[in-house]
Nucleic acid binder design. Sequence first.
DNA 1: AACAAATGTGAGCACTGCTCTTGACTTTCG
DNA 2: CGAAAGTCAAGAGCAGTGCTCACATTTGTT
Lengths: 255, 255
Amino acid sequence: MPQTELAVKPPTPRERARARTIEDIVRLGREHLAVHGAAALSLRAVARDLGVVSSAVYRYVENREELLTLLLIDAYNELGDEVDAAVATLPVTDFAGRFNALGSAVRRWALREPARYGLLFGSPVPGYQAPAERTTAPGTRVIYALMALLDGAYRAGRLAAPDDQAVIVPVLSDDLERIRSGMGLAVPDGLLARGALVWTSLFGAVSFEVFGQYGAGTFAAPDELFAHHLAVLAELAGLGQSSQRAGRQTADHPE
Amino acid sequence: MPQTELAVKPPTPRERARARTIEDIVRLGREHLAVHGAAALSLRAVARDLGVVSSAVYRYVENREELLTLLLIDAYNELGDEVDAAVATLPVTDFAGRFNALGSAVRRWALREPARYGLLFGSPVPGYQAPAERTTAPGTRVIYALMALLDGAYRAGRLAAPDDQAVIVPVLSDDLERIRSGMGLAVPDGLLARGALVWTSLFGAVSFEVFGQYGAGTFAAPDELFAHHLAVLAELAGLGQSSQRAGRQTADHPE
DNA sequence: AACAAATGTGAGCACTGCTCTTGACTTTCG
DNA sequence: CGAAAGTCAAGAGCAGTGCTCACATTTGTT
């Protein structure tokens, strides 16, 4: 049985060279992105660094948007890989620890790659619209990881229903329902909504640190403050009381 | 006694005309910003709309950065005005209601002015660095309003210390300390840190809605879900239990 | 009316994304 | 083996950008 249904032609030397050139372009684009930011990404500058005339790169990348899409997918996957690796460090039953690792990994990557983080979670690039069919899969890796985490905790009876269930959530967003049905989650509405809040809160805290440059954004949070936030968010998600292994949560992030 | 120490010269007609022209430029810039986004703001396009040659606007605005700064201050003040107005709708003792009004006002303005919201709280504009001495005052209006709200609640004995004080916050950020001392806040460290988390979480939830276009950001939260988030955040800040006027919080936002 | 300051003009430089033609090179097929 | 087909880089060119500068014009004041 062949690996794929279509016959896989072996790559010709030309195709190999072409693939390598595209890789080089993405690599150079990633560097420019990291230095100058997303909106200032210049195909001509990439061409210069590649040692080639500007029009030549259009042989490999359709236009600037295409390069942005490649960089978007690239960044999403790098973030997803690091989050997955950090989570996998801890045993599957240590839900609080895994949540902490997930949040810390997101923050670490964001602080190391602020421009790429901005491309993913910041204000949209003016003329650019990401093609959903290519970016949703890598773009949803982290939230899927978080939801899988919460669902696992719930199934293990380790997700405490918050005591303040007086506030009921009447409607979930269509996207949340899609995620829930798509993943076959078991968590009830209230906890799912709380998970979404935890999700956005995590990225809010990280974004304020990464984008913190304007008047309102002068939040150079020390590691301890972020660790506190993570601990509170874990409790908010329902991971606090039931898994009370933590009188002192493992708030410090590895390395 | 003169109003100010320096003798205030009455504005000459020339100065009046100049001020009006600058106002026009800012107004046109605001429109361009709202339509095309921050990074695509073009001085030449503004000049065209103003019916003048491109180099003429440099008589009024030093460069593109200067215009961005003016638009930044303009947006911060508009947001601050709307938040203040929404908060002032409710009596000073209705802390939970005022918190809800604050959050709803931020979200409403952000959804109405996504590009300007992106300029304030999104990824930084590539070559641009906001001058702190001119933007910090308008840029801190909302967080100051939130902190004043929490401090008032604390002083009135209406801010419940969370029961999970097992998680202690060891260090506040310098910025938080500066805000606390600058405002003469009475709230203790733990609640101040929670206030900061609530602050960033609020903007995280709003940002995901406003910027929600990429793969990870498909969070078209319905009003009810955001209202739920606001209610949970109010409780997180400590406004939940003690002010138990709300078996059902006033989760709907006015208008 | 005359002067000087303020304002508008147009050319020009360096940069951007992108298109198109031209020439050279490589692979493939008759 | 040679010709056709495919691939790639180069360079010119178009329209747009921020910004500067010399020059002309308007305008308020003396």
